[in-house]
Nucleic acid binder design. Structure first.
Lengths: 208, 208
DNA sequence: GCATAGTTCAAACGGTCGTTTGAACTGGAG
DNA sequence: CTCCAGTTCAAACGACCGTTTGAACTATGC
């Protein structure tokens, strides 16, 4: 296996992913990142322009493959017969967990990063995540509405938000050191459990 | 209506609740809090000892009535026939939403604060929340296991974590200025919708 | 070899952070 | 009135923050 040399830019993105995911944006200093990346502090502003621009680049890079896979699955579903709620839920959840949990520690790191950014206390940071997944959102909402004709638009939006929240929750808990008594699930089964949970809730719990 | 005078200590706790809930712990400075509370910066260390101790006191004060109500409901449920999953879910979710969403803007503020602390990026902050709800947690898990005898302990823990996560999600979105296209639910119906969603997921989605 | 664009570097910038200090004020007890 | 514990205050502490600077280094094209 031949490992190509990492550029300073790549090292900064990698470390940013790790540190922002474990301390949040406000809780992580550029100095902590640049030291861990063996880079000079000024390198951040040279390559990205600012701390927030570094985060923005890291979010975009981390979410790109997830969104690509989601788009691919949506295209595929729209080509065939009207999809079931389960198919749609899988198309959303699995790219967020599988693509990322199957890449070992590195993938779990990315998952944690994405999950934490989506729930960051600061609205400005949360919007960095929202902007990345916004183009997909309307497609999902429309497809979900079609798959659940009995549910009101509000109910569909409510279910979608819950799906998004639970996915981010379990993403953010990737890499967690088995937090005490909390359920240590087999990571390979996590996606399956979450899908089962959400399908049940969508099929029987969106009456309103 | 006679309003009693607020002590500096109370004003600090009130403002801390508001600011920590809208900027997170790291994103909120003591100076921002003391200015808004019309207090001197040194007052924080005089009354609480440190920034983190102020947060700890605010968390404890905000969660006390919620935990009290949860304990009361658990006691009541344990006195009668074995409770259904729905009864247990209500006993957990409703105190977190009703007690707090029915108190107008002030209550929504507290809800947002609790929800954000529970999901803070920093583990040390998250544990401040965990410590507060820890004593109740084992009682809920045991009662849930009894109400869902077919579910494995891992599945019960998984469901509990999802319930906790979704509650915190909707708490943290209290006071949100109707975030764009996101579903603006009738706040009075929120608890009912969330319970319905969770009951369906618990009853049909915890097979593993 | 020389010029040039791209990149890295140590050092410093002004500003804000949480915390501490010691004096000033407050109001009731003796 | 005196005293004293409780509380507030302006000011400063050292540390760290994100950002900027200008020089030094690197490598490629001529």
């Amino acid at each position: 296996m031949e490992t190509t040399v990492e550029t300073t830019r790549e090292r900064l993105l990698n470390v940013a992913e790790q540190r922002f995911g474990e301390g949040g944006y406000e809780g992580t200093s550029l100095r902590a990142i640049t030291v861990a990346a063996a880079a000079n502090i000024a390198a951040v502003n040279y390559h990205f322009g600012s701390k927030e621009a570094l985060l923005r680049a890291a979010v975009a890079r981390a979410m790109a493959p997830v969104n690509t896979e989601r788009r691919r699955r949506l295209d595929q579903l729209e080509a065939g017969a009207p999809p079931t709620p389960e198919a749609l839920i899988r198309a959303f959840v699995e790219p967020g967990l599988e693509l990322v949990l199957r890449r070992g520690e590195r993938g779990a790191l990315i998952a944690r990063f994405i999950g934490r950014i989506a729930f960051d206390p600061s609205r400005r940071i949360r919007e960095l995540y929202a902007v990345e997944s916004e183009p997909i959102e309307s497609r999902y909402l429309a497809a979900l509405q079609q798959a659940l004709p009995k549910a009101s638009p509000d109910a569909v939006a409510f279910g979608y938000m819950n799906m998004l929240g639970l996915l981010a929750l379990h993403q953010s808990q990737a890499l967690s050191p088995t937090p005490g008594a909390a359920g240590p699930e087999d990571p390979s089964k996590l996606a399956e459990n979450l899908v089962t949970f959400l399908v049940a809730a969508f099929d029987h719990g969106l009456s309103s």
